[in-house]
Structure formats: C-alpha cells, structure tokens
Amino acid sequence: MRPVKLIIALLLCVIVIAFTPFSTKEHWKPLFNGKDLSGWDTYIGPDLDDNGKPITGTPVGLNNDPRQVFTVVPDNGENVIRISGQNWGAIITKNEYENYHLQLQFKWGSLSWGQKKGKKKDSGLLYHSVGKYGADYGAWMRAQEFQIEEGNTGDYWGCAGGEADIPADKKSETDYIYDPRGTLLRFSQTSKQSRHCIKQGDAENPSGQWNTLDLYCHGDTSIHVVNGKVMMVLYHNQQSENGQDLPLTKGRIQLQSEGAELFYRHIQIRAIDHLPLELIKQ
C-alpha cells in the first residue's frame, strides 16, 4: 500500500473509532452471581422482641444465620436474593468501593416481623459502610443510607455517624425535604435537621413489582435514583469520629434486613470518573 493511501486508511480508522458509540455494558461487574452469596458476608444483630427491644443484647453475629434470613431462591425462572426481615442485620460486600455507579432491582414480599409487623415495609441500601459491625442499632455498620421503604424509597439517613450536606426546605418542625434549589443544610446526628432528609417526589412501583435503584457516588457526592427519577443529590459525604468530621467517600455496601421480606436481583457495579451532569442539573 502506498504511504498516502496508508495514511488515509489510518485516519479513517481513527475517525470510525472516535465516532463509534462507547458501550459501557462491558464494564458492569455483577455483585450477585445468581447462584449463592459468594462475595458477601452476613451480619445479624441481637434478637428483638415485638417492641424492638433486644432480648439478650448478644448479636447473632458474623456469617451466622440460623433462621436463614439471607437466602437465594428461585423466582419466575431466575435466582434472586431473599431477605426475610426476621432479624435485623445485613448482607455486606466483602470488598470496598468508591467512585462507582451501582444498580440493582428490588421488590417487596408479603411478610413483616416484630415492631414492623403491619407497618410500612422497610429496608435500605447502605453505602460507604465502614467501621465496626452493629454500630447502628446493633445491626449495621456506619454508612450513608439510600432508604428503601414503602412510600419513602430514596430518602437519606445517616447511620452511626454518617453525615451529608443536602439542599432542602423545611417541611414541618422536624421534617426537611430535598429541593435542588433549597438551602444547603447539614444532616447529622447532632444537627438540628437530624440525620434524615426526605426525598423529592415519588417513583416507586406498587408493592410486589420490581423497582430499579441507581446509586452514583463520585468524590464526596452521591445521587439517589429510583426507577430513573432523581430523588436526591447529597454533597460532602462525611463521618463524625470522636467529634471530628472526616471524609466518607468509600466503603462496603450493605443490604438491610429490617423487619420486612424483600427480594433483590441484577446487582451490578461499574467504575465512573464523573457524575452524569444531567442528573445534577435538575
């Protein structure tokens, strides 16, 4: 091939590559293999009575699940993770993650237990999980919570010292609701806003139907998305440790058992080097 033709061919290759849509599907890493709980630990807190009081105060502990709270079961031709909710606790990734996009699907079961019996079904996606087991209510590590609760999926809770700055408006004497144009407020155990911020809007499907959650984390910012709708953007994720505010930008992932039966599937994660601008500019 003549040099000029070779140069033209190479330029054409470069142009084709440059304008070929970039597929991110190859970069998803499954966190659930569809067979068992490989890659996850389990932790179960103390047995509770119907009023939520510890019966003995002794946790069931790490990778000890006598009641089979966490199992893999068949559902319409595929295996899914079942969390019974009978004990408070979580499955926890063995690995830590930072700067990622996590996606999963969940749906509610029919059972509820103890102080949650007959009430809104409750669970949670806890991210940036660090520190000791059972730091929050004897059942969960310190973390930021992407709330999973009937009617409230997408809310924020700071667990055992987790903190964040969130733009919000005051809804009542004790409640604040996310507003991207609101005042940037600190949500923590010690702030007057407390450690809970209510999401904006509602996107959860009816009970028993699958919902898709997307969690974006990059640097000290995170975004909660439910069924494609942004519920909240959190800034300055951090943790309180002995009176000091320290960064909280990476950690393990916990999926809660909190008194209600639910199912998870299609849990996957991929690294990101920035947050989607369209999700921040609402």
Rank of each mutant, 00 (worst) to 15 (best):
F146D: 03
I91R: 14
D122V: 13
D245R: 11
H128L: 05
V226M: 05
S23L: 06
I55D: 09
N227D: 04
Y156T: 07
V14T: 04
D65M: 09
E173K: 15
K117W: 12
P276V: 07
I280D: 10
W88Q: 14
V233T: 09
T58H: 10
R270G: 03
G39P: 04
A143T: 12
K121F: 12
F32N: 00
K94T: 10
W88R: 14
E241K: 14
N152Q: 15
C159L: 13
E78H: 11
W210G: 06
N242A: 08
F263T: 02
M141L: 07
M232R: 00
Q239D: 00
I55A: 10
T56I: 15
T190Q: 13
A203R: 03
W140E: 06
I81T: 12
D165C: 13
A18L: 00
H274T: 09
Y176Q: 08
L104C: 03
R195P: 01
F32L: 06
D49E: 10
S38T: 08
K199S: 02
G219W: 07
T249L: 00
A160C: 08
N87K: 15
I81L: 14
A143D: 01
G182I: 06
Y133A: 04
D75A: 13
H128M: 08
D175V: 15
A18N: 01
W40G: 05
Y100E: 04
G219L: 04
R142P: 11
N205Y: 07
S240Q: 07
Q115A: 09
A271C: 00
W108P: 10
G182N: 10
G52H: 10
I177G: 10
Q115F: 14
I148Q: 02
V16C: 03
P46L: 14
M232K: 01
M232D: 01
L277V: 05
Y216K: 01
R2M: 00
K116Q: 07
G182A: 07
Q193M: 12
Y264L: 04
Q239K: 08
D75Y: 15
G124W: 03
A168D: 09
D65T: 10
P167S: 02
K117C: 04
Q244M: 01
G161E: 12
Q268W: 08
C13T: 04
K171M: 12
P59G: 10
P54I: 02
R67A: 09
D214A: 00
Q144E: 05
H101W: 13
K5R: 02
Q147A: 05
G77L: 09
V69W: 06
Y133H: 11
T42D: 07
W40Y: 07
Y137W: 13
A135L: 07
I253Q: 01
I253H: 01
D47E: 11
A9N: 00
W40N: 02
W88P: 06
Y100F: 15
S112G: 13
V130T: 13
I15N: 00
G251H: 02
T58N: 12
F106C: 07
W210L: 04
P74T: 14
A135H: 03
A260L: 03
G201Y: 11
G124P: 05
R82N: 14
G114L: 15
Q144H: 09
T190F: 03
V73W: 11
D50F: 06
D175R: 10
D165E: 06
Q200Y: 09
S240F: 03
L215S: 03
K229R: 01
V14A: 02
I148F: 02
T71L: 05
V72N: 15
V69R: 05
R142L: 13
K199V: 04
R252L: 03
